[in-house]
Every structure is written in structure tokens, then in C-alpha cells.
Amino acid sequence: MRLWDLLCPPTCIHCGKDVYTQGEWCDTCLQAVMHERCILGPKHSSLECIYILADYIGGIKTMLHDIKFNGKKERALGAAPFLQRFTVTCLDMQYVPTIVVPIPISESKRKQRGYNQVEVLFKNWVMQQGWNWVDLLLKLDGSKPMWTLTKEERRKNMKGHFLVRPTMVDTYVDKDLSVLLVDDIYTTGATLLEAAETIHAVLPKAKIKALTLASGA
């Protein structure tokens, strides 16, 4: 056992029950939120489907809130069992994306928070799969916090706030890409849809799917 575990014994990410390693869940709390599913993107849109790994309740909700608003990026260790399960799903589907693209945050928010929570949650796992993590998108300043808005307001709020990095257009424009967008939470789909439409407008051969850790949908 590591010294840190002796000084601070690992406990469940949600209920505080003793577990074996830091960032682990107890079986009860894990099963309460584990809910892998796939929903189709809107008709006639550039987003084919969204894979969701857990329900946005209980320990998942607390974990993501701590990562985004309390500076506790070490809590991202709790995403491991959900991503491990999705690894098996990808193997079963024989799904290998050409590139994995994180939903970015604006530069002002990155300076305030110190990191993009999507990168903290997904990047190490993506690299372990041998997939290509590509920061293809930029997020422009000016959008309002999404949690304050209705579904229609969210859609309007995201319009025009993403940009494909100009330096990357020539690299991918003529390729038949399989793109996997990754984000922390799926609510109405406004963010993922706008990101997919932004990519498809510049890279029309791209086939785009998405993956989120959690959703209330």
C-alpha cells in the first residue's frame, strides 16, 4: 500500500465507504449511476449518435461538480470504470475513431479554472486506446453559462461559438474521418450538435459521433 493511502485511506467517491484504491467506487454507488446507452442525433444533422455512460445523479453529479467548480481535478479518477466499460463496447462494435475531439472551453474560462475538465476526464483514456487526441476546435468567448438557460436558449447560445482551428483544416479536409466528440455532460445536445455542425461545415467527409460521461436524458 502506498504511503498516501496509509495517511489518507481511500474511500468511495460518493458515500465514503472504504475501498481499495483512491478514486474508486463501492459497488452500490457505482451500480446506482452506471447506465450505458446510445441515443440518435437529431434527424438531418451532422451528429450521428451520442454514447452516454452514466446517469447524472448521485456520485457522478458530485464528482463532475467538484471537477468543474471546486478545482478537484483528481476526482476524474472516478471516470475510470465507465470508460473501461466503454472500451469493451468499442471492441464489440469494432469502433476505432480516426480522431477524438474534446469539446473546448473558452480561453477566459481555462485561465479561471486552470484546465478543461473534458481533457482531465478523457485524455489519458484516449491515449491508452492508442487513439489520436486532436484539439480541433476553439471555443470563442461570449456564451452564457448553459445551466442558466432553457433548451431553446441553449441552442441559440451556442450558435457560432465554435471554430475549427485554421491550421488543421488542410490536414483533414480531404480525409474520410471518423470523429468522436467527447464532453462531460449531455443535457439538450446543443453543445455537441453545434460542435458537430461546425466540424462538418469545414470537413464535409467527417462522420461524427459523440461520447459523454453522464446525462439526465
Rank of each mutant, 00 (worst) to 15 (best):
82 F>G: 02
101 V>S: 12
30 L>Q: 02
5 D>E: 15
120 V>T: 14
203 L>Q: 04
13 I>M: 06
135 D>F: 04
170 D>M: 07
84 Q>L: 10
11 T>P: 02
88 V>M: 03
26 C>A: 00
69 F>K: 05
136 L>E: 11
47 L>K: 02
214 A>K: 10
40 L>T: 12
97 P>H: 03
164 V>Q: 03
202 V>L: 09
1 M>A: 12
124 N>F: 08
114 G>P: 09
43 K>E: 12
66 D>Q: 02
111 K>W: 14
127 M>F: 15
39 I>N: 07
10 P>K: 01
193 L>F: 03
112 Q>G: 01
21 T>I: 13
114 G>Q: 13
8 C>I: 12
25 W>G: 00
5 D>T: 04
80 A>K: 14
119 E>L: 03
44 H>K: 13
163 L>N: 08
179 V>F: 12
31 Q>V: 00
58 G>H: 00
128 Q>D: 13
48 E>I: 03
157 N>R: 10
201 A>G: 07
8 C>T: 13
49 C>A: 05
192 L>E: 10
63 M>N: 08
1 M>V: 07
97 P>Y: 02
51 Y>F: 13
93 M>H: 03
141 D>Y: 09
1 M>Y: 08
53 L>R: 00
1 M>F: 11
84 Q>E: 15
31 Q>T: 01
20 Y>P: 03
105 I>R: 04
95 Y>I: 06
134 V>R: 03
194 E>M: 10
167 T>I: 09
65 H>C: 05
148 T>P: 01
18 D>C: 05
151 K>C: 04
49 C>Y: 11
204 P>S: 01
57 I>T: 11
30 L>N: 06
86 F>L: 06
56 Y>D: 04
178 S>P: 04
203 L>R: 03
120 V>D: 01
92 D>P: 04
142 G>I: 10
207 K>S: 15
217 A>H: 12
4 W>Y: 05
55 D>R: 11
69 F>V: 01
105 I>M: 15
209 K>H: 14
99 I>F: 10
125 W>P: 04
13 I>Q: 04
179 V>Y: 10
138 L>C: 12
55 D>P: 08
35 H>A: 15
151 K>F: 00
161 H>P: 02
117 Q>K: 05
80 A>V: 00
